[in-house]
Every structure is written in structure tokens, then in C-alpha cells.
Design a protein around this nucleic acid. Sequence first.
DNA 1: AATTTCATTCGGGAGAGCCGAAACACTTCT
DNA 2: AGAAGTGTTTCGGCTCTCCCGAATGAAATT
Lengths: 250, 250
Amino acid sequence: MTGASNRSVERAFRIVDELAENGGGRVSELADRLEMPVSTVHNYLQALVETGYVSVDDKEYTTTTRFLEVGHRQRHRLEVFQAVSDELQDIAAETGEHVTLMVEENDQCVIVAVQEGPDAVNLFAYPGARMPLHAAAPGKAILAHMPDDRVQEIIDRQGLIEMTNQTITDPDVLFDQLEEIREQGYAIDEGERIAGMVCISAPVLDKSDEIRGAICVCGPQSRIDEARRAEIADIVKRSANVTQVNLDYV
Amino acid sequence: MTGASNRSVERAFRIVDELAENGGGRVSELADRLEMPVSTVHNYLQALVETGYVSVDDKEYTTTTRFLEVGHRQRHRLEVFQAVSDELQDIAAETGEHVTLMVEENDQCVIVAVQEGPDAVNLFAYPGARMPLHAAAPGKAILAHMPDDRVQEIIDRQGLIEMTNQTITDPDVLFDQLEEIREQGYAIDEGERIAGMVCISAPVLDKSDEIRGAICVCGPQSRIDEARRAEIADIVKRSANVTQVNLDYV
DNA sequence: AATTTCATTCGGGAGAGCCGAAACACTTCT
DNA sequence: AGAAGTGTTTCGGCTCTCCCGAATGAAATT
């Protein structure tokens, strides 16, 4: 855990991040943004091209499909992803809304899979997208099934960043809600991450009650009234349960 | 184009490749396989963890969802992927088979998107998966719309590797087929990559007649007779055409 | 308790990466 | 055309960083 680092590795991935962020770039442009000498950036890009993870076409450098490949291979091995199988598609068809499978990684809530129902609003949601745990229904569902001290550690490290004026920023309020989530078996967020959106999410636990992820349905508040919420809550709870059972057979 | 390399970058990605290949690994295991000193591998893993692209849980190192993220962001910016929009899904529903969008990258044929129809056989096909251009219908469709000298370069660099006893390994035969593909507007492969599978694919060209990718339907030979092939050929040609038109509006 | 296996830390030496400067390739002015 | 501007690529010597053997620490196994 000492900072046994490696400058080259760090820089290489900073360049990759920058390429991903802007969908590619040229030598001097990147050198500018990263505040590195052009020749250095040039060297790195050359090295990255040799690895096959970056390619260059007419001086424009971009990441390659290698990232897709590595990402999908890893996802394919993720048990909860295998266990959820067709559930997301079924929920999307049944609710018409935007459905996601999410997991925790490095103190954050990450989308693993997305399925858009016929009426889904266009969210900027793609596999790998990250968000704070406290500001989203699936994140809260996940936190609710972690030990309290682990939750506290995450709060200490990450803080409770405000994403909308509805975001929970008070630890006490958060802990109270986590208690409530455990009782009712699902989490709900009313514009806490994106104004005007309501998300309903159920946690997926394994047989040792370890939290593995959460299934989440998102839609505009206008379309999802009290009765519809209860309906969706039942659906996500049912699917989370099916997924839990499937976990034993992956 | 000089070998302006960087050992650290190369090694870092070799480790990533190894992790992706085996779905994770431990220090000494990786050191063994990569023939590097354990302490060195340890240092690299440490550095990779710091970048966020690798994570460690109880001494087991794995790639993180960062790869998914970078991969999906890049894919989202790929024009042909945007242009194909719901076509893959439509074809999958219509044919019931396995449908893919493929592009050329670094002399290879890469899957960009997959859609499985209700009767699809279970292929080991995921976004980012790679295969030789000459041994698959989409690859041949792509080659057919490259300048001949570029095709020759690819043959020179990559060879015509035999994947089944049906694979084309003679350049002359290949060039003849490419001519035929250009005439009929689609490519077909009969167990040239996977024994017992037939794949039918149409090229997607942009308005400058530049090749952008290919749409492909795969299924077992037993289920796809002469008449069905003609039917599927029409479908992929139609979709490729729709995609071409969409290319102007992305 | 002893033994094996594996992860982690340490540190001195060597070689690898670093980056300024110069050369080169292309555009866009005057 | 020529000149000036913009950005990429090559070069090379100095320095600093990565490298890896060896020692230590931590766990599992006998």
C-alpha cells in the first residue's frame, strides 16, 4: 500500500483517460491538456499504439476496441451479470422504462448493463458509467447492505457530494434511509441525482447476504405516480430475487 | 514509426492482457506466466491499481469496469455504430439468428455490436472479439471494398490462416471471391471460420464509397437452406443500405 | 511447530525514459 | 513564391526511475 508507483504507467493511463474523454486527440492537443512536453506525449502515444490499445489515423489518436474486449470479458465473468440474464430485458419490456444493473467498485456505483424499454427517456447511461453511491437508488440499496462502518469509511473518503438540491448530504439522514431501505426491501430516489427523475432499485444479495449489486428502474417523475412506484418496486424486488437464486447456478 | 517504445507501457498492458485473458490473477501466477520477477509484477499491479484500471480484492487482481467505460465511450462515437441504430435488433427479430456489426481495425475484423435473435446459436461472440478478415463473411465484405493493394498488404502481413478446412488460403481464390462479392452486394461464408456455420454479410459504405463496416447474420447450416440464404442476403443488404443513409445524419 | 507458499518491502546500480532543440511536413498567409 | 506559422517527428545526452535480487513478513498446510 505504499505509493509504489510507476510514472510511465500513470502517464500512459492519463493519456488513455484523456483520449476516452474527448473521443481522441492529437499530439500537441494532448500535450497541452496534460501539461506534458509534446515529445513525451508523442513517445507515449507511439508506445500505446504498439500495445494495440490505441490507434492512429492521420495523426488523430483514438482508443481501440481492445477496451471493449477487455471490458466485456471481465463483465462476462461477473457472477451477478450472468445471474441477471434476461431479467433486465423482461423488466424493460414490462415497465417500458430505463433499466440498469449496477455494482459497487472503488466506492462508486457503476453501471454494468443497460436495457432501454420502449418508453425510456434518454439518459447518458452506458456500461461503465459511474456515479456516487449516496445519490442514486441503486447506490443506496447497495450501501444499505454493507456494514455501517464500511458505509462510514466511504462517506469519509468520498463525502456526500450534492448533485441536485434533493441529494442527501447529511450522514444521519442517509443512515436513517438505509435502515428504511432494509425494512422495505427496495430503495427509491426522487430527483436526488437527476432532477425530475425517479429511480427505484432492489439489492441483489447472495446466500451469505453479501451485497452483489442492484437492479434499477428509472423514469420521469411525471409518468410514475404513487401506484406505479409500488408496482415497479414489486417488479424490481421480484427480479432481484430471481437473480439471487440464479447466483447459485452460475 | 521507429520503435519509439516504452518498456513500462508495454509491460503494463501485457499484464492487463493476461488479466483479461484469465479473468484475473495473483502476483506470482502472473509473474510465472509473463516470465517477470515477482517484485516487478507486484510493482506494476500496484501502479495499475492506482490508475483505477485494475483492482485488487484479497490478493486477486482483476481489471475494472474502466475498460467497459472507455470501450463504450469509443463505440458510442463510432459513426457506423450510431447509424446502425436499431437495425441489428430488427434483423435479429426477423431472422431469429445471431446478428453482428463488424468493423476493420489493425488488419482484423472486430465485433462492435451483437444482437442475438430468439433462435441464435451460442457463439463466443462479444463486442471487441477479433477474427481474421479473410475467414469470415463480414471480413470478406470489408476486404471487397478496399483497394486491391491494401488487401495484398494485409495478406502479406497477416497471411491467410486456416481456421477450418473450408477457410480460403489461396490469395487468387480470395481475390476472385472479392470480385464476386462486389457484384452480388453481399458475402457468404460456409463454415470457413467455424465448421457448420454459415454467415451472410453486407458491407456498409459511406457516400464516398469508403468501407465503414459490415452487418452479418450467422446460423447453423442445417437451418439455412438455399432459399433462406437469399432471404437473409436481402435483409442484410437492406439494412446495410438503411445504415448507409443514416450515416449522413449522425 | 515446522515447512512451504506467496505477497510485500528495500535499496543500490544500470539503463530507460525524459524533454529541449532541431529537423521536417503542411498550411496559410503576404 | 517565399515566408511565417502550426504541428509532428527525430535525436541524444543527462538524470532519475524503474528493476530485480534478497530479505522480511504473512498465511496456509503438514
